[in-house]
Write a protein that binds this DNA or RNA. Structure first.
Length: 502
RNA sequence: GGCGGCAUAGCCAAGUGGUAAGGCGACGGUCUGCAAAACCGUUAUUCACCGGUUCAAAUCCGGUUGCCGCCUCCA
């Protein structure tokens, strides 16, 4: 079965047929490095990281290019504000980008080209467009003439007449058509510049992607991605430039991810609700963020809220609790004598119970279900549902096993854990050692509660003494006190565990 | 004004022609001294509304309402 992808160009899901068998050339618009990355950048990065990972999981040889826009108006403005040069700003925020994305566990793309390192290629491409009569000089600027490219608007489904009718575009005297866009901008005094046949200047925004994608991936790309907002004008303009210059189709499959809202509001500077990755990671484990995004389809808008992250966190905590329990169970010696059958589950003595058989089916079919979901336009939400299902089945096995795993159950638990590890890699989830994860959760929680583990253990000892004496009143009192402080106790056959109230 | 998208249980959310995944929550049960955790069960005869196509529609078509995005830098 082929992987199916929703192509923005056609608005439909299509079978993915790469240009070269088992190879994928994929270009994703990265960030303009003038400020810290926010949760929206994180979503886009995580969406395409997951796609990148899934193709590789599926055995494709992927060349993944994600650029840095390191020259642009916003960078110049920022540099002026801080009294440094553009390169300093760009370097600083590239470094911050790498730090943040590294913490989110993003794989490194095959290439991370920067606009300023491809100026000469951009000049070449612009020259070709001028030669072909598709671009013209206006003042010191070079513009692309949208009217000369007959397919202009095909990605964003607009036509020139409609756009001009409702145009809110500033009239620029130098442009022949208000919708023409700059390929090259002459530099104003004090701005960084490069020499060109048209004088000192710098590239327009769109040309870098045409150049860099072509350089690293060839004239036709399998996949081009980015945030929804980039469809117009950015990607529309890329198509115009690239196809006008090469005469070949630019991109086979366009993928666009949906936006992140903050408490149902659009994230924007003016609302002051920009949530940076750094701020998120102060409060949440990176996998909480990933789980949150992966629980939604990549094309839908998602709404960030404190509650939604709490929900994601409790989901993640539960997964890790299960892993931990499995690891503990696997440390125990296996035994051929089955644990006491529980009549409620309809188990008979000897042989596999229906419950075990159901678990076996769930474990064995997991991989196929996971792949089916992911093949269908990277449906991570559905795939995640199968992880939950797998978890429930493994917990069932743990329930039956109760510290006395049979070889059969132990092998199934092990298999389940392997699934979490292997398919979890695609999502970059479940990467931590469960014991470490849970220990750290506790440690960080204690810090917030201003308690030490010693104090809690002391109190638990005290309570266990009361329990031994069957002084339930006192034992319950102690448990209630701890609960009020945010500590939950769990009495198990092997002792009392504690954890933080979620 | 133009273009595009969305509307599924208390909440979050999958599902593009075959009879509604999953998570959170709630309730009942098993287990437990009692809890917690875990497991089992219940929780949408129905997918904003009105028409149409079809043997069959949450899914396709037309219309209505409501929300959102893009058209200006934006992931």
């Amino acid at each position: 079965m082929a992987i199916r992808i929703h192509n923005t160009m056609t608005g439909k899901k299509e079978d993915f047929i790469p240009l070269q068998e088992k190879k994928v050339g994929m270009y994703v618009c990265g960030v303009t490095v003038y400020d810290l990355c926010h949760i929206g950048h994180a979503r886009s990065a995580i969406v395409f990281d997951t796609i990148y990972r899934y193709f590789r999981y599926r055995g494709y040889d992927v060349t993944f290019v994600r650029n840095f826009t390191d020259i642009d108006d916003k960078i110049i403005r920022r540099a002026n504000e801080e009294g440094v040069d553009c390169k300093t700003i760009a370097e600083q925020y590239i470094s911050e980008f790498n730090t943040d994305m590294g913490k989110l566990g993003l794989e490194k793309p095959s290439f991370e080209p920067r606009a300023t390192e491809h100026i000469s290629e951009m000049i070449q491409l612009i020259s070709i467009l001028i030669q072909k009569g598709l671009a013209y000089q206006g003042g010191g600027d070079i513009f692309f003439s949208v009217e000369k490219f007959k397919d202009y608007g095909k990605l964003s489904k607009r036509n020139l007449e409609d756009m001009q009718a409702g145009a809110r575009v500033d009239i620029d005297e130098k442009k022949e058509n208000p919708l023409d866009f700059a390929l090259w901008k002459s530099s104003k005094p004090g701005e960084p510049f490069w020499e060109s046949p048209w004088g000192k200047g710098r590239p327009g925004w769109h040309i870098e992607c045409s150049v860099m994608s072509q350089k690293y991936l060839g004239e036709t790309l399998d996949i081009h991605g980015g945030g929804r907002d980039l469809t117009f004008p950015h990607h529309e303009n890329e198509i115009a430039q690239s196809e006008a210059a090469t005469g070949k189709p630019f991109v086979r499959y366009w993928i666009h991810n949906g936006f992140v809202n903050i408490n149902k509001e659009k994230m924007s500077k003016s609302l002051g609700n920009i949530l940076t990755i750094k701020e998120i990671l102060k409060d949440w484990h990176p996998e909480v963020l990933r789980l949150f995004f992966l629980a939604h389809h990549y094309r839908s808008p998602v709404d960030y809220s404190e509650d939604s992250f709490h929900e994601a966190k409790s989901g993640l905590d539960r997964f890790y609790s299960t892993f931990n329990a499995i690891q503990e169970e696997l440390k125990k010696p296996t035994t051929f004598s089955p644990s006491l059958p529980s009549p409620s589950k309809g188990e008979g003595a000897g042989g596999s119970s229906p419950v075990i058989e159901n678990c076996r089916k769930a474990i064995e079919s997991f991989r196929a279900r996971f792949e089916e979901a992911m093949d269908d336009d990277f449906n991570t939400a559905e795939a995640l549902g199968y992880f939950y299902d797998l978890q429930r089945n493994l917990n069932s096995l743990l329930d039956i096993s109760k510290g006395y795993p049979t070889p059969e159950i132990a092998s199934m638990l092990k298999q389940g854990l392997d699934h979490f590890s292997k398919m979890g890699w695609v999502f970059e989830l479940f990467r931590e050692d469960p014991e470490h994860y849970l220990a750290r959760q506790r440690k960080e929680g204690l810090k917030k509660l201003n308690l030490t583990e010693e104090q809690i253990l002391y109190i638990i000892d005290d309570r266990n003494l009361a329990r031994k004496e069957k002084n339930w009143e006192k034992a319950d009192e102690i448990r209630k006190d701890l609960l009020a402080k945010g500590i939950v106790l769990e009495d198990t056959p092997v002792g009392t565990n504690w954890k933080l109230k979620s």
